[in-house]
Design a protein around this nucleic acid. Structure first.
Lengths: 201, 201, 201, 201
DNA sequence: TATGAATGAGTTTTCATTCAT
DNA sequence: TATGAATGAAAACTCATTCAT
């Protein structure tokens, strides 16, 4: 399965832009990484800013997470246990797509217009949480709540930790050590979040 | 009251950097805005990244926070209660100067040279924490500790939350709702921080 | 027969560097003289010091020395006699191209990056020594040795004497008087060099 | 004994120019090293090139070597032994004034006008050789010869070795190790030079 | 006499973009 | 469609020199 020139360029651009930022990444660097000539980039994307936008747009479209496995492993009994599994999965998903989030976060801080993108970029993850919370409400295991708000709150906290872990340490992947470090810190947070929706019988 | 060249340059740099970002602002632009030659900038600041850091540092030093009121409201008895008041006050202070930090934090994600939280911490705020911790040590209410380190740890976490709260939500001020949301999440964090310095009698 | 950009640049650079020295010659001057843009220079040579080294290296490669006559006059019996002939010929060759080396050697005293004698050695001359030493080894007249090292050692000594002779006296050519003076001093040196490779039967 | 500003500047300039060359040495560097302001340099020397010339001129005027001790240690019997002592002393003298020779040599290679300076700059050393050779001729220990030429030949060879030793190794002083290394190589050279003037009785 | 502050004119180097092939 | 070669415009930075004090 051969990648088209456009795909190769976008893939390289995504990695480099996220790692080094827009200004520190030169078109020649992208061209070399993608194995094409600089001229090809300009033929296909007109100019650098356009390459940037198209790269991000494509990246967003490409998101798909297989949530079936996780759903299967949920008990739908202990909210705290399930939450731990979901958070763990969320971290793994974010780390897998680190490149894109880095770009978004650094842009979101500066540019108002793209702030609302924040959670659009991971619809499957949001859906997963939504489905789970609904089911739990139906089963009367948790309080009625604004699922969307709760998901936003929790996922933004996950993303926050992903960004800061990768920004201030050299971590780039969710390996076992990183996993343990982060999830350890999340024991209390998960307790807090689950307490928010605990049913007072 | 004439401004010195250094002051003129820093004033112009602060405006341009926060309006346009680091890479989008050239030293010649700053020189023109400040009414000095480019050479003067490099004589006084050595290089561009240093100009950036010094500009921010000066800006932060320039901030004056009235800490008297807070000091008056501290009990110097319950560490946990006092910490809650101090953190609350810190959030309010950062939110008041939100515009300054946005651009710098966003650059920190991408520019290696400025990846240090410490220099983003208000000196008055740091002093406040320092004084408080010292007093508590004298009164034997908390363990002996490295006050500076503890303050950095706690305040960088505050700043982190300020930035992310404003990035992922439309919040721009520390109004009642924001206050409640954030301080709620900090109940556990404060418990954690106070446990660090609890005296084992 | 059109010259390539690289050739045009090297030609201009050689003239300007040897006329004015390294620091007195700017890349923009070379670009103008060569009829190309400055950017082209940096695309082809990366940086100024590299342009300098490549220019000299090319110039030296461009020299062609007719080594046939010398080869014919070698006995391949007495190493010492042959060495005398070869050294004599080397001196003559260097003196013929004196103008090239002057400026570069003077820079070598001051510019760290180019302090390497080896690259100042004529390839044809090096080849001549190499061929001769190999043949002598085959005929078992001299010990096995690192021909390249031996050649470098000997020829850099020749070059050293060329430069200093022309610096401390008004000598500019390898006329009979100069020849006698230098070769006289080399009697002992040649004895030394030949002793290095003498076979102990 | 306080140095005047002019003397301090010349002393610093001499060291820096010789170590780094004319173009690599900035006036601000010299000012800092001399502990004066840049403006002072330009008041006293008008411009950089003039500073360079005046520095060298003063340095030359300042040369004085105490040759009495050496003279006392000469036997006036064995030419070879005496030559060894004289050469040794010459090396020490040159190394002691390394700064000046570096500048001169690198200039002499390029600028014809100052080539004749070469031996003017060490009149005492020349005088020492001259006196010794005359005395030896009077005592009929050596052949009659052109003393000036012989001295030039020998001293230029000494200087050659000083310059090359200091250029291609990190050696900057005539310490014991350097002394041994060089004088070892000079055993044969001295034999050669003394053979030139040996009397065939 | 001495200097701190200032700068104009330069330097090397980078990079997005173009264009002939 | 693809690219190697070329570059204009700009970047950060340097430095000899001036001048008010």
């Amino acid at each position: 399965m051969k990648l088209s020139a456009k795909e190769k360029i976008e893939a390289s651009a995504l990695i480099l832009f996220s790692r080094q930022g827009f200004y520190e990444t030169s078109t020649s660097e992208i061209a070399k990484e993608a194995g094409v000539s600089e001229a090809t980039i300009f033929r296909l994307f007109s100019n650098k800013i356009n390459l940037y936008i198209e790269t991000l747009t494509s990246a967003i479209k490409g998101f798909e997470i297989n949530t079936n496995k996780v759903l299967a492993s949920l008990s739908f009994e202990s909210f705290e246990n399930d939450l731990t599994i979901l958070v763990d999965f969320s971290f793994a998903s974010y780390f897998d797509n680190l490149h894109i989030f880095r770009i978004f976060v650094s842009n979101m801080i500066q540019i108002q217009e793209i702030r609302e993108f924040a959670f659009l970029i991971f619809p499957d993850l949001r859906q997963l949480f939504n489905d789970y919370l609904n089911e739990m409400q139906i089963r009367s295991k948790i309080q009625t709540c604004d699922c969307k708000k709760f998901t936003n709150l929790l996922l933004s906290n996950v993303l926050k930790d992903v960004i800061f872990t990768t920004t201030f340490t050299k971590t780039e992947a969710f390996d076992q050590a990183t996993h343990d470090l982060i999830m350890n810190q999340w024991v209390n947070k998960i307790k807090f979040y689950s307490s928010l929706l605990r049913r007072e019988d």
